[in-house]
Amino acid sequence: PESRPPVLIGAGDVNAAMDSARFTFVLDIPPDFEADVLAGRSPAAQLLIDATAMMQAGIGAGQIVGILDDEIGRFARREAAAAPAPVGLQVRYAFNQALDTKWFMGIMATINNITMLAVLLAGAALIREREHGTLEHLLVMPVRPAEIMTAKVVANGTVILALTAFALLGIVRGVLGVPLAGSMTLFLAGTALYLFFATALGIFLGTIARSMPQLGLLFILIVLPMTMLSGANTPLESEPKWLQWVMQFVPSTHFVAFAQAILCRGAGLEVVWPRFAATVVIGAVFFALSLRRFRRHLAAMR
């Protein structure tokens, strides 16, 4: 009851399963393990761990080692003479071998700030334009609502992409010394896809809020829970099943998943393309809904 039921996989499938984040822990039990335990030869079992989420890796490793020690100790005492430490368990940490907190927190802070800046900058731009009367000036120009909204999405997205590249290369890797395992180009491409959703969400909230304080309150009620439940702070697997299912329809969940896969585990497009596709599809649907709301908002101002 302390963990999910174990899944049996072949030795040749271990690397692909861990690279794709299918498993966090893989226990490698060698051939003739039972016979070696009974003979008192102290065989070694290997525990492979995905240390992308460092806290989960540390807690899980301790639990698994404790479970194995108890079970193997009971087995050895029942079937053969008691012997001290009948099995030596070798632990191998992958993707964060030093268990350095900076490796996880530096990347996750950048990912969370991308969502925060995209929503707040796009929403604030719309509210400020309405407060200063510049939005009415746009209404008398020969531009359509889709062009106005797309311009805001592209402008804010470009600024955030540039800041993201600077933060990862200059601060996370340059100052903090965190290695970025995967392709920055691939990550920035995925971030650009995600920003269509995040900036559209900001504009959607900007059409609802009448002032910056109201936008801040809506941000707390909507964006903060969305970020906390996306897997950036705690593993998605620790949430109830129904909530895991709901979060699959939120692009931030897929954004966090492919960002961790690329930056922490060095995944390529062949691994993260399903996450990219989900981000595009869900983001496009919400962009269309936000555009519809934006059109109504402009029509009410005429």
Rank of each mutant, 00 (worst) to 15 (best):
202 G>F: 05
51 A>V: 05
238 S>L: 05
139 L>N: 06
62 G>L: 10
247 M>E: 06
92 R>E: 09
128 R>P: 06
55 M>R: 08
33 F>G: 09
121 L>Y: 12
146 A>M: 12
257 A>R: 02
179 P>W: 14
176 L>S: 02
167 A>S: 13
68 L>A: 08
246 V>C: 00
134 T>P: 09
212 M>T: 05
99 L>N: 02
301 M>I: 11
271 V>S: 02
152 K>N: 09
36 D>K: 07
58 G>I: 13
77 R>V: 06
35 A>K: 07
56 Q>V: 03
19 D>Y: 01
6 P>M: 09
71 E>M: 14
54 M>E: 03
101 T>M: 13
154 V>C: 05
184 M>I: 14
22 R>S: 09
250 V>D: 05
96 N>C: 04
212 M>G: 01
160 I>T: 04
228 M>Q: 08
181 A>N: 05
31 P>C: 08
284 A>F: 02
276 F>C: 12
261 A>G: 03
123 G>K: 13
78 R>E: 14
133 G>N: 12
124 A>E: 11
68 L>E: 01
289 L>G: 12
117 L>C: 07
229 L>P: 03
50 D>K: 00
101 T>A: 07
135 L>I: 14
150 T>R: 15
29 I>L: 08
109 A>T: 13
123 G>I: 12
291 L>H: 12
168 L>T: 02
256 V>Q: 01
14 V>T: 00
41 R>G: 09
88 G>E: 12
264 C>H: 11
129 E>S: 10
35 A>P: 00
159 V>F: 13
28 D>Y: 15
188 L>V: 14
228 M>K: 04
1 P>M: 14
135 L>E: 07
289 L>T: 02
95 F>K: 00
109 A>D: 01
58 G>Q: 13
6 P>I: 06
62 G>R: 12
91 V>E: 03
246 V>I: 14
75 F>L: 12
136 E>M: 11
109 A>W: 14
130 R>Y: 13
198 A>P: 05
132 H>P: 06
227 T>P: 01
196 F>L: 14
91 V>L: 12
37 V>R: 00
189 A>E: 09
22 R>Q: 07
116 M>S: 07
55 M>Y: 06
75 F>N: 00
193 L>S: 10
11 A>D: 10
43 P>H: 04
271 V>P: 03
230 S>P: 00
196 F>T: 09
19 D>L: 07
72 I>P: 05
285 V>H: 02
266 G>H: 07
52 T>V: 04
71 E>F: 11
39 A>R: 15
153 V>W: 05
296 R>A: 12
37 V>D: 01
126 L>C: 06
152 K>V: 08
127 I>E: 02
131 E>Q: 15
126 L>Q: 06
208 I>W: 15
150 T>H: 15
36 D>L: 07
47 L>M: 11
238 S>Y: 00
267 A>N: 01
78 R>M: 11
86 P>L: 00
148 I>N: 03
258 F>T: 03
131 E>W: 15
233 N>F: 11
6 P>Y: 09
295 R>I: 15
136 E>R: 10
245 W>P: 01
185 T>N: 07
284 A>R: 02
57 A>V: 04
281 V>G: 07
283 G>W: 01
31 P>G: 05
252 S>Q: 11
138 L>W: 10
298 L>S: 06
219 F>R: 01
259 A>S: 15
221 L>P: 03
63 Q>F: 15
173 R>Y: 11
122 A>I: 06
71 E>K: 10
79 E>R: 14
